[in-house]
Simulated scan of single mutants.
Amino acid sequence: MQAAALLNLLQFASPALPIGAYSYSQGLEGALEAGLVTDAASAGAWITRQLHDVVAQWDAPVCWRLMHAFSRRDADAVAAWSERYLASRDTAEFRAESLQMGYSLSRLVAELGIADPDMAGMLPPETETTLPVAYACAVAALDIPPQEALLAMLFAWAENQVLVCVKSVPLGQVAGQRMLLSLRDEIAAAARHAQQVADDDMGNWAPALSLLSMRHETQYSRLYRS
């Protein structure tokens, strides 16, 4: 990677990016409440399973296709995958999560002026822009290589999941970093799968996760918004 692209990637994959990712657990807090995650071993198993069964099977392949669509200036493909991804958010929390972070990131892209008018014009209305769409737009606008951007997206997802575990299992900081280190091969495998999976083989069928998300909406004590 060129130094400029690497620095752009580090900035837009950083936990310091002001889009509110730290306030969501993506169902993990519901799993903690249900007793499905209780220690480092069960936390690692939960993250790995969700990474391969949901993120690598749907979120990452959609993001991969969106990055290439923005690079080609293919507005029809951007619109199609944007609509499919939004329709796949099957609970109120999951939908609100992606829309809130997508809105925040799209506003940041606009305020920083990094996307040319044609590329910015391919974004859906702000109230319908999900996180993968806004991220893909930023990646294409900054000329970040898609493969590295995909790895960064998956690492950021895993890092956020580990941070939830550090705070809520709870795990120590060293245990959290050990878990993140152990996930590197899994993340690399997920990235490879996301680039190769055919459109007809993609999907986010995870009914137990959806049920946990719906229960979390009325969970009495919680730290996270999903």
Rank of each mutant, 00 (worst) to 15 (best):
M1L: 14
A3I: 08
A4F: 09
A5N: 13
N8V: 01
G20Y: 03
A21W: 03
L28T: 07
G30P: 13
G30R: 07
G35A: 14
T38C: 00
D39N: 15
A45K: 11
T48M: 01
H52V: 04
V54C: 04
F70Q: 07
S71T: 14
R72I: 04
A79T: 11
R84P: 03
Y85R: 04
L86D: 14
S88C: 05
D90F: 04
E93G: 12
F94Y: 08
A96T: 11
Q100K: 07
G102P: 10
A110I: 01
P117I: 04
T129V: 11
T130F: 05
A136Y: 06
A136E: 08
A136W: 04
A136K: 03
A138N: 05
P146K: 12
Q147M: 09
A149F: 12
A156K: 15
W157P: 05
A158G: 11
Q161G: 06
Q161F: 07
Q161W: 05
V162P: 00
V169Y: 00
G172I: 05
Q173G: 01
Q177A: 09
R178C: 02
M179T: 12
L180E: 09
L180P: 07
L183R: 03
A190W: 07
A191K: 13
Q196Y: 06
A198W: 01
G203I: 08
A208N: 12
M214I: 08
H216S: 05
Y220F: 05
Y220L: 13
Y224C: 04
S226Q: 08
